[in-house]
Design a protein around this nucleic acid. Structure first.
Lengths: 244, 244
DNA sequence: CGGGCCGTTGAGCGGGCTCAAGACATGTGG
DNA sequence: CCACATGTCTTGAGCCCGCTCAACGGCCCG
């Protein structure tokens, strides 16, 4: 159990260090963070809007999503998260949650007391800075999604999102950029893209007919990356990946 | 000149302290940040996409906006900023800008070298944390705008945005919540709401006919706050203002 | 075998877009 | 003082992308 937990934070550590390496003391201070691991069911909520979360959660396995529902019943998904992501720094540090965090698939996560995080980032400012930058990248992704939803049509939106996932999963070592597992229903895709599930179905069909992507079950195969990226107006700069 | 500059950072300091008070040393360390002040024209860019900004900018007077243009020519405005806002921590800390920062009105700003910021936040982690939280609130606003654009119709979008500005301006001490100056053209409103300028015109007219708001020149008068907030599905939780 | 859940397909509608023209204010130079 | 250009806002008419409503089919799992 402790084995699992440690390796979970390890993935988080690797993610932080991808941007800027940490010293040995910082590294071990991070890995020594007190935490408990817990397995989570699909659709289980990690945090709900208006709660005051007392733990911050690092995904070890499985996928999660942020979302919020408007007064008219429309739901908007803001982002999708994968193993290694510290998934609710956003909510836990600001004391009152302004959106929901929900598992997309079954998985496991490490729960770290918020005070331990606050404490660590004060004691070891380099870690604080690394986490800060991580949330800045999250913000960059939020902005790109706003652009996606606000200014691109359905086919471009879908293409853009599929490209983003391809790249992020590849960088995280969770798939190839041309073929990956994505545990989202068409209804969830719709809420991420601000479309209806029906139109998501039609859009995916159109992309398949054009020979760009193929989606079967919960997996995505990209047949023509170049064309898909072009159609999706996809420029990965906003992901702020290490240049290679 | 130095007088002006100091008072500019002072406003920023007040904003940081609204969330969590800082110690005397932190306070003076922040105010002692090296910086130069500069006056900016309307439509002048502070940062452009793909640049590698070497300064972080704190607004002293005037309004600014973040935006980015999609491949099809559509522009999306992500947020509006007002005096006291550190307006491009987002871009400067991640080294390569992924969006533009442009003045909405003429104004003045303090420019702080990025290294000085990085340095200060490492030396004085409490300040780092305060700035971090500030960017987390920015992120919360990005999310709300995504929901706005994705899941609300034109009248609700507009109402929501007018409510947000009313509250933020009041908290910043720049207007009453029922009457304020907003230096945005209808085209800029359109790009913030993901509408066309034409539809913005019609929507504003509709809200005026219903007796909710009145817009003349560049000022906004809210005639029925309660109805406007309801129509706009406006719940200020996401702004994370101090509870009072 | 029955019942969710998920995806597909069709038909009709509508909110916001496009295109086009005009109104009005401001500034600028002759 | 007028002539003209420019930027901003308004109004009208027609259209289209994506929505709504409804039915059906496949699949999994009890």
């Amino acid at each position: 159990m402790h084995q699992l937990a440690t390796s979970g934070l390890k993935r988080f550590l690797e993610k932080l260090e991808a941007r800027a390496p940490l010293g040995a003391e910082d590294r071990s201070a991070l890995l020594d963070l007190p935490h408990t691991t817990k397995s989570l069911r699909r659709h289980e909520f990690i945090v709900r809007e208006d709660e005051m979360p007392r733990h911050c959660c690092v995904l070890i396995t499985g996928f999660a999503m942020r979302h919020k529902t408007a007064g008219n019943g429309g739901r908007q998904i803001f982002s999708i998260h994968m193993p290694g992501d510290a998934v609710d720094l956003q909510n836990s540090l600001l004391s009152r949650a302004d959106h929901n965090l929900e598992m997309l698939s079954a998985g496991t996560a490490a729960f770290i007391p918020v005070e331990a995080i606050r404490d660590l980032t004060l004691r070891r400012p380099a870690i604080g800075q690394a986490m800060w930058y991580e949330t800045l990248v999250d913000a960059a992704i939020f902005r790109e999604w706003t652009l996606n939803v606000g200014r691109r049509d359905a086919r471009s939106r879908m293409s853009h999102m599929l490209c983003e996932f391809a790249l992020r999963l590849e960088v995280a070592g969770l798939g190839e950029s041309t073929q990956y597992e994505l545990p989202m229903t068409q209804e969830e895709l719709a809420d991420a893209l601000a479309l209806t599930p029906i139109h998501v179905s039609r859009t995916l069909r159109a992309l398949a007919v054009e020979g760009l992507v193929q989606r079967t079950n919960r997996s995505v195969k990209i047949l023509d990356w170049h064309a898909l990226a072009k159609l999706g107006d996809f420029d990965p700069g906003y992901l702020h990946l290490a240049e290679e």
